[in-house]
Write a protein that binds this DNA or RNA. Structure first.
Lengths: 222, 222
DNA sequence: CCGAAACTGACATCAACCTGACAGGTATAA
DNA sequence: TTATACCTGTCAGGTTGATGTCAGTTTCGG
């Protein structure tokens, strides 16, 4: 699960980041709506945790501009005020959940998990692509009727390619999806995972082409 | 069976939670309709026990808003007043059952079981899976004709796997079923219960496979 | 034909997982 | 109450397997 946290209180942000990292989730932190906006423009996340009170543009403004642009990203709102108006307007604006400060980190994490799970369940989580099918709920991959066993890294990479068919992805794009923010990686690690993935899915109609000097491109070969 | 209890009387709530936990069910307790609403929006339960008289939004309001949203969750209404109007309106609003206070905890539990059973579309509480059968009322497990004695934790885990065959379950998914909200757990505790469960059901055709780095997957081996 | 980029087999590392032993807690019976 | 049995989480040690690194090779563009 990859999460973007938008929160200007540094102490709170740190504990959230720490807790999520501990629990094996990738979480990036920004302190303003403007920064969140620009990161969301070119990076992909599974969900957004958004504080309402932010210096400059408020959380509500960010949320509504996302929804105007038809961005379906699951959003969980954090609000310091317990008043109902905030909640109502948050849900009206298209938030998927809200939490009133102060809250229990475990509860935050549980709600995030639920949100992401629900989002995945919504899109009937079966991706067909030629003779290859991927079920994101069960994390199983089939070529024809045969089940292929993939390792976690390979699953992540395959999922990325399947959701970005016919689009060029640089090694950095891929690494951003695979590694937590700040986690070190070498280009070679990505290549290695790719080698392994290619070996596993050979025999399928999904081809991952190398675009030398640029990146990779997945497409269906008939 | 995972239950959400909405009840503002703390003493009563405690005894219900205690009784259900004792009997191997996961039960979470909230004290208001508002809290119930937000939890239901993002977590999955098998049923809801709902007090009518609540501070703030009443049980009826919660129930009717659930049904307006086409939420089919089985609901059992608790009412302090024995008057017929309440019962009638409860059923009109889409409650599946009601109970008049004071009541016997055993009766409450029995009705809950019946409700969940009905929802699952089964006329009995017997789940068959290869040569293994599980009776959710009596909590007895048989391999072939031989009765297997399981501990409460093992029963909970087995029930979860049986109702989620061929689906990947993460350790967190499992823990959420086994432990009430806020209760601490370590991954190792889950592993330990699994080890014990596996030992008990060896000889059956039910296999619980480890998917390293991801979770577990139960399926029937022929 | 050269150099950079990509590929890939081998290996080391480390985290995930398994499991036997133990201990604290709770129910049950005397 | 005391004694007993049992349940269940924690700890520690061992095993397995996923994954990044390295190094040698291949491929490709210019």
């Amino acid at each position: 699960m990859r999460v973007l946290l938008t929160e200007d209180n540094e102490g709170l942000a740190n504990s959230i980041v720490h807790y999520f990292t501990e629990n094996g989730h990738a979480i990036d932190w920004v302190s303003s709506a403007e920064k969140a906006d620009s990161i969301l423009a070119h990076d992909e996340f599974d969900m957004l945790i958004l504080d309402v009170n932010l210096p400059g543009k408020s959380g509500f403004e960010l949320l509504s501009s996302l929804r105007i642009r038809k961005n379906p990203l699951p959003v969980l709102i954090l609000t310091a005020r317990a008043d109902i108006d905030d909640r109502v307007s948050a849900l009206d604006l298209g938030a998927d959940d809200y939490l009133v400060k102060p809250f229990d980190l475990r509860e935050l994490a549980a709600r995030c998990r639920a949100l992401v799970r629900r989002e995945r369940g919504k899109s009937d989580n079966e991706i067909q692509c030629g003779n290859l099918s991927f079920n994101s709920a069960t994390k199983t991959v089939k070529i024809g009727d045969e089940i292929i066993e993939l390792r976690p890294r390979e699953v992540q990479m395959l999922e990325l390619f399947l959701t970005h068919l016919d689009r060029m992805l640089t090694k950095d794009d891929i690494a951003n999806r695979l590694y937590n923010f700040g986690e070190a990686y070498t280009p070679n690690a990505v290549e290695q995972i790719l080698t392994r993935l290619r070996k596993q899915i050979q025999g399928s109609t999904l081809i991952i082409k190398t675009v030398r000097g640029m990146g990779y491109l997945a497409h269906v070969h008939d």
